[in-house]
Design a protein around this nucleic acid. Structure first.
Lengths: 343, 343
DNA sequence: CCTCAAACTTTACGCGCGTAAAAAATAAAT
DNA sequence: ATTTATTTTTTACGCGCGTAAAGTTTGAGG
C-alpha cells in the first residue's frame, strides 16, 4: 500500500493509468467495464486507498443510492431486529441503508422524513407510528419519494405495504386457546399507538363470535410506547380485582404480556399449564425477550425475516422498474403458533 | 406558501431579494447576519420551502456537521437507549447525528468506521465491541477523526473516554449482598465480548478479598451477544448441578441475569428474599427490562443519561476547541444500587 | 489479416454551494 | 452632516464528480 494520498479521481486516474470517465463508470457499477480494465483498477485500488467523495457523487445524481429506513422505536428489540434484517438486504443490493428511529414521537417521525428528503434517497422503507402519525405529511412524502410501508399502514400512502396477517394470527391463537382451555379475554391498550392493535381487537372479536364465545376486552389506560409498564400496571389491577370471567388472557402484543406476566408473578399468581397454575397468558409477535419470561411466553410469531425481505425486495423492484407502479400491492404474512409455557 | 419550486440558492436569492453569499452565511449560522436581514430571509423561507442541497454544502467543507454514533448492538435496549440520549444532545447543538450499529460484528464495526469516514464527520462517538474489535484500525481511525469512546475502552484510542466506574459499582453490590446474606458467586462469560466484563471480574475478586471471602467464578461458555441465551443455558446447568458454595449469584450484566432468572424459574427454584426462596440473583446495568423479570432484578444502575451527556459534551468541546487536546480525559460515573425483588 | 462493434480516452461542461476580494450600502457614532 | 465600522452585494473561482460527444484503441469473429 503506497501511502501517497490520492485527493480525487483525477489523481487516481493518473496513478492507475485509467481515464477518469472510465473510473467513474467503474465506481458506479464495476461490471460495466471490461474485465481486464476492472482488474487493473482493482489492482491500483489496493495499492492506493482511494474512495470517491460521497458528496460530489451525490450532488449530480437526481437520486442517490441511499435507502431510508424509519422505524417507530429503535429501543424496541422487535423493530431493531427487523431493521437489522432490512439493512442486510439493502446492503446486498449495493445500496446504502440509512436507519432512523422516531422515538415514538410524531414530530420526530416528520423530522426524519424531512432529513431523508435532503439525502435524495432512491427509496424509503417506513414503519410508521400509526395512529399518532401525521397522515397528511406522510402521504405527501410518499408522493415525492418511492416509499414502501411496513408493519403498519397509514391510509393508503406508499407504493406498497408489507405486514402481518393479524386476522389469521389472532384466529390461530384464539383457536388454540379455546381448544385447550377457557376462551381468552383480550388485553390491550384503550387507545393503542399502533394500528395493528385495532386489527387485532377486531380479529379477536370476530374469532370469538365465530366460536360462539362471549368476547371480553380488558383495556388499559396509558399512552406512549412503554408497553411493559402499561402491561404491568394494568396487569396488577386486573389480578387484584379478580373479576375476570376467564382464566385466560390474550395480550395484544408481547410487550404488554411481558409486563402482565411480571405483575402476575409479583401478585403470586402462577401462570401456565401446570396443575398449580390458575391463569394462562398468551402474547403476539414472538418478541426476542418472550422466550425469557417466567413462564416462557406462548405467542404467535411474526415472520420478521419474511417481512424484512419482502419489504426490501418490493422497494428495490419498484426503484429499478422505474415505472409508476400499476397498483398498490399489499402483502400479509401469516403468523405461526409458538407454544411455550404460559398457555 | 407559494408553491413555485426553488431549485437552488440562486433562485431563492432572487425571490427573497437577498444575495447568495449572504444566504450562504445565514444557512451556516443564522446569527451571523444582521437581525433585519435574518427576518427577511426567514419570512421568505416560509413562503417558499427551500433547503440547501446537503451534498453541495458538504462537498466544499473539509468537515461537515455530521456526528457519527456507533454502538456495538442496536437490538440491545441498553445501547438503543444510550444512543437515543446522545442523539438528542447532538441535535440540540445543531449537529446531525448519524447512528450506526455494529450488530456484534468486528467487520461491521470497521465497515461503519469506513462509511463514516466518507461522511467527513466533525466527530465520532464510538462504543466499541471491545475485545473483538480490530484495535489497530480503530486506533488509526481515531487519528484521523476526533473520536470519543464510551462504554468500553480500546487501548487508549480516542481523545477521551466516558464510562462506568466498575470498581465502585461492583464494590457496592458485593457489599450489599454480603451484608444481607451469603457472599455472592460471580456469573459471567468465560470469554466475554465486552471489556467491562473483565473489569467487573477483577472488581469482584478484589471486593471479595477485601471482605475476606472466598471468591467463586462461574464461567459460561459461548460467544457473541446473545447474553440471555447464554445466561439461560448456563443457568440451567448451574441449577441442575447444585454444587454451588453459595446461594447468591452476582451476574456480570443484567442480560445474563435475565437468562439466569428464566432458567431458575423453569427449574422451579424460587429466587428472591422471601422465606420460600432458595437463591438470590443480582445483575449489573439496570437494563430497561430488568424491572420486568420474575422476580424483579436487583442490580446496579449505570447512569445512562450522564454517560450520554458527558460523551456528547466532551466531543463537542473537543471539536469546537479546535486545539489538539492536551491530555486524554477519562470520566467514570458511579453506579447506584437498585434494590428490587431478586436479592 | 481484416472488419466492426465494444470499450476506452480526450475534451469539455455543469451541478449547487463555499468563499475570497473588492465595491457598495447601511447603521452607528461623532 | 460627516466619519467610520459593519454588513451586504457583485463578481468570480473552485470543489470532485457525472456525463455527453467525438475520436481512438481493443479484441472477437470471420
Amino acid at each position: 500500500m503506497d501511502d501517497k494520498k490520492i485527493r480525487n479521481m483525477e489523481e487516481f486516474a493518473a496513478v492507475s493509468g485509467i481515464s477518469r470517465p472510465t473510473l467513474s463508470k467503474f465506481f458506479n457499477d464495476p461490471s460495466s467495464v471490461r474485465a481486464s480494465t476492472r482488474q487493473r483498477i482493482e489492482a491500483a485500488l489496493d495499492r492506493y486507498d482511494y474512495r470517491p467523495n460521497l458528496y460530489a457523487i451525490n450532488q449530480n445524481r437526481r437520486l442517490t443510492k441511499n435507502i431510508g429506513i424509519i422505524v417507530p422505536y429503535l429501543a424496541d428489540p422487535f423493530f431493531a431486529e427487523i431493521a437489522r434484517n432490512i439493512e442486510e438486504h439493502i446492503l446486498s443490493t449495493g445500496y446504502r441503508p440509512v436507519l432512523l428511529g422516531s422515538h415514538g414521537s410524531p414530530d420526530q417521525e416528520i423530522e426524519n422524513l424531512e432529513n431523508l428528503r435532503l439525502l435524495k434517497p432512491a427509496g424509503v422503507l417506513l414503519a410508521p407510528l400509526g395512529r399518532a402519525s401525521d397522515q397528511a405529511r406522510i402521504a405527501a412524502f410518499c408522493e415525492e419519494v418511492p416509499t414502501v410501508l411496513f408493519d403498519a399502514n397509514v391510509g393508503s400512502a406508499g407504493l406498497a405495504f408489507v405486514g402481518s396477517n393479524n386476522d389469521q394470527s389472532i384466529d390461530l391463537i384464539v383457536d388454540y386457546l379455546c381448544r385447550t382451555g377457557e376462551p381468552p379475554a383480550f388485553f390491550e391498550m384503550k387507545e393503542p399507538s399502533n394500528p395493528n392493535a385495532y386489527k387485532r381487537r377486531h380479529a379477536y372479536l370476530a374469532a370469538m363470535e365465530r366460536l360462539n364465545h362471549t368476547p371480553h376486552l380488558i383495556q388499559a389506560a396509558g399512552e406512549g410506547w412503554e408497553f411493559e409498564e402499561i402491561g404491568f400496571r394494568e396487569g396488577t389491577r386486573v389480578v387484584r380485582d379478580r373479576n375476570l370471567p376467564t382464566d385466560t388472557i390474550l395480550c395484544s402484543n408481547d410487550r404488554l404480556a411481558i409486563g402482565f406476566l411480571s405483575a402476575a408473578y409479583e401478585a403470586g399468581i402462577r401462570v401456565g399449564l401446570g396443575t398449580d397454575c390458575t391463569m394462562r397468558v398468551a402474547g403476539h409477535d414472538d418478541h426476542p425477550f418472550s422466550r425469557y419470561t417466567c413462564p416462557t411466553l406462548t405467542t404467535v410469531s411474526q415472520d420478521y425475516e419474511a417481512i424484512a425481505r419482502k419489504s426490501a425486495e418490493t422497494l428495490m423492484n419498484l426503484i429499478e422498474a422505474e415505472k409508476p407502479a400499476d397498483s398498490r400491492e399489499e402483502t400479509l404474512f401469516d403468523g405461526r403458533l409458538v407454544m411455550r409455557g404460559s398457555a
